[in-house]
């Protein structure tokens, strides 16, 4: 084998290189054909001018994009304070559901009820109930801010999902790890903190990444209760200019953030699959 290597590529390597080139050529040709067809054929379709005018209007896009980007900062802000709160609350709920002491039975029930309720109710309903409902009790500034109560609605809903993911992570740690830790004289609490949780959290990182991506998008639901974030801002432009391009602009901004994040989550997931095998 090594002698062949010094003498040049082996038969197999030559064959595989040839195959690789062949597939690259075919893929490139078919991609070019499809792209050309789209560029040539789509504008020929009846009504294309109207679609372009309404959705892909360059002039409107250039005019509204900076303001949309500005409004997106609000999405990022709400995301930035909600995400850590969700991580903490989700973990606490997961741990509450995993307690065993009879004295903590109420805590277990609470954890189960919490996840059942907030996973079972549509996010938008929770946002309305808490975001409109609680300030409507007659709270004074700054405590009637829709930012606070809208964020709380997101935190509660997402914590329920995140808690379930943490719980599946805890279950995924093999019971022999618990046995080994217990056999050394550690208490149940120490076993959870030092041995089970660190492994559980690591196992669920890819799934939690997907929750972060979903949260980034759902921040837009708060537009219904007041904050002028990107979706609301795009709506304002749409009414003003009678054109849907600002929505497309908003979609582009979301995709700039979510596509890399999704790819990264997929990468983590694939890596984990490889390691488990």
């Amino acid at each position: 084998m090594t002698q062949n290597r010094t003498a040049g590529p082996t038969r197999r390597e030559l064959f595989e290189a040839q195959q690789r080139w062949r597939s690259i050529r075919i893929a490139a040709t078919s991609t070019v054909l499809v792209v050309v067809a789209l560029i040539v054929l789509v504008p020929l379709a009846p009504g294309w001018a109207k679609v372009q005018q309404s959705f892909f209007n360059g002039e409107v896009l250039v005019k509204t994009f900076p303001k949309l980007l500005e409004a997106f900062k609000i999405n990022v802000m709400i995301f930035a304070w909600s995400a850590p709160a969700i991580a903490v609350l989700g973990l606490l709920i997961a741990l509450a559901r995993d307690t065993k002491s009879p004295a903590l039975f109420p805590l277990r029930i609470f954890g189960a009820a919490f996840t059942d309720i907030f996973r079972g109710v549509p996010v938008i309903l929770t946002v309305y109930l808490i975001g409109f409902g609680i300030p409507g009790l007659g709270l004074t500034r700054p405590w009637n801010s829709p930012y606070i109560w809208g964020s709380l609605a997101l935190i509660l809903t997402y914590s329920a999902y995140v808690a379930e993911i943490f719980r599946s992570g805890i279950d995924s740690v093999h019971h022999s790890q618990r046995a080994a830790a217990l056999s050394l004289g550690l208490t149940e609490g120490q076993v959870m903190r030092d041995v089970v949780l660190p492994q559980a959290v690591r196992n669920v990182v890819p799934s939690q990444m997907n929750m972060l991506i979903a949260l980034q998008k759902d921040v837009s639901l708060l537009s219904f209760i007041g904050p002028v974030e990107i979706f609301r801002q795009a709506g304002v432009f749409k009414s003003l200019l009678a054109n849907f391009t600002p929505y497309v602009g908003a979609a582009i901004i979301f995709l700039i953030v979510t596509i890399p994040a999704t790819r990264y989550a997929d990468h983590l997931m694939a890596k984990q699959m490889r390691e488990r095998r």
């Binding site: 022999s176 790890q177 046995a179 080994a180 830790a181 056999s183 050394l184 030092d194 041995v195 660190p198 492994q199 690591r202």
Partner: peptide, 13 residues
């Protein structure tokens, strides 16, 4: 009482 298992059960992290 110490115990050692067939599958080692070291903490991987």
């Amino acid at each position: 009482i110490g115990i050692v298992f067939q599958s080692f059960n070291l903490f991987p992290h």
